[in-house]
Computed example of a mutant assay.
Amino acid sequence: MKDHGTNNDAGMPTRQLVRDEITLKLRRIIEEQRGNRPVKIAAERVLAESLDVSRLSLRAAIKGLVHEGLLIQKQGSGTFIVPKTRIDAIHLFVAPDIKPKDPFYQEFFATFSHFLATQSIRLEVVTTDQTELNGAETPLILVGLAPQAIVIDLKKRYHHIVSVQSYPDSLDITQVFFDDYRIGQHAGQILQAHKHERLVHLCGPNAYPSAAERRRGFIDSLKHEGVAAEVIEGKMNWSTGYEMGDEVFSLIRGSYGATAVFAANDWMALGLLRRLTEKGVAIPDELSVIGCDDIHLATEIEPHLSTFRWDMDFLVSELFQVLNSLVYSDTHPHKRVLLPAEFIKRDSLVAHTEATDE
C-alpha cells in the first residue's frame, strides 16, 4: 500500500517511516548488486511499483543514498550503484596554476572529498619538494595543468597517475576530464540552431588546453555552414569580460552585426553582460549569450545565463573506476576518458528571428 503521509501513534509521520523503509530496501539491493563497475538500477516507475511506494518517497530515498555516495545519477542515463573501490589511500598533487576561487575546482574538491569520506579512503596532498616521496603502488591524482618538468618528475615517482586535466602531450598518463572540444562544438551548433550567423567567441588563453579545445570545437562547428565568428582572447575572469564589452559592442552595432556570444566561462559572460547593459544593449533581444560552468550567479542575474553544467559526481565516480582498473589490472592501460557536459538553456538565449521580430 502506497504511503499517504499520515501519522502513527508515536507522532512520527508515516511518510518518514516509509522513506526509511525504502532506503533500507535500496541498501539491500545495492549490497546484492554492487560490483567493480557501475550497475544501473531499475527505472523510477518500475522500482516504485515493485516496492509498492510512491515515486515521491522513492525519489527522497534515492536522493539520500546519492548524498551518501552509494548511488549516482547520470543525466539522461539513469541511476547507478557506485562501484566498490579496493583503493584505501590516494596521493593528490595540485598544479601551481590552480586558482582557489575557480568554480570548477571548488566543486571538484568538495565532491572528491565527500567521496573519500564515504569510501574511507586516506588522502595525502603531496608536493615536488618532498624529496623522500616514493609513490610506489599508491595512485596519484593530478589536478590542473602542471609544468612538463613536474609531470616528468611525478612519472618517475608513481606507477599510477590519473589526471583530471587534458594533457595532449602526455598520453602515457591516464586522463579523465570533461570534453571541452564537444562543449565548444555544442555551443556553435546551438547558436546556429537558433538562427545566429554572426557570432563572437570570448576565449581564454590558448596555453590552457580547456580554453584551446573549446575554441577549436566552436570554430569547427561553423566551418561548413558559412557562419562567421570573431574571436577575442583574454583572461577567463569577470574583469576581462567587462573590458571586452566595448569591442563586442562595436561588433553588435557596427557593420559586422553580431547577434550571439559564446564565452569560455560564466565569469567572462557575466562581466560582458554588465558592460553591455551599461551601454544600453538589450539582452537577449540584441544579443544572445552562452557561458560555461553554471556558477551560482548564473541564475542571480537578469536575464538568467544559458550555460554548460558539469556533473561532478559523474566525474569522480569515473575517476575511481579508472583508478581501480589501473591499479588492479594486469594490462595497466592508459586512456583518455572524455565526459559530456549538460547544456542548460535559460533566458539569455533566444532565436535570432525571434529577437528581431519583437
Rank of each mutant, 00 (worst) to 15 (best):
H4S: 14
G5H: 11
D9F: 13
A10I: 13
M12G: 12
V18H: 03
L24N: 15
I41M: 07
A43D: 15
E44H: 14
A48G: 01
R55C: 07
S57I: 02
A61L: 10
E68T: 04
L70V: 00
G76C: 08
F80Y: 05
I81V: 07
K84V: 08
T85E: 03
V94K: 01
D102G: 09
E107S: 14
T111K: 13
T111Q: 13
S113F: 06
F115T: 04
L116A: 08
Q119V: 00
S120C: 10
I121H: 12
N134M: 03
E137I: 12
P139N: 06
V143Q: 08
V143Y: 06
V143A: 06
L145E: 12
I152R: 15
H159F: 11
V162C: 05
V162A: 01
S170W: 12
S170Q: 14
S170T: 08
T174Y: 02
F178A: 04
Y181R: 03
G184P: 05
Q185F: 15
Q185W: 15
I190G: 02
K195N: 15
C203R: 15
R215D: 11
R216M: 13
A228S: 13
E230H: 15
M236V: 13
N237I: 08
S239H: 15
M244N: 14
L251C: 08
I252A: 08
Y256G: 02
A258V: 07
M268P: 00
G271A: 06
L272P: 04
R275K: 05
V281L: 01
A282C: 07
S288M: 10
I290R: 11
D293P: 06
H296Y: 13
H304N: 14
S306P: 06
F308N: 02
R309M: 00
D313P: 00
D313L: 07
D313A: 12
N324A: 01
N324W: 01
H334T: 05
H334I: 05
R336C: 04
L338K: 11
H352K: 14
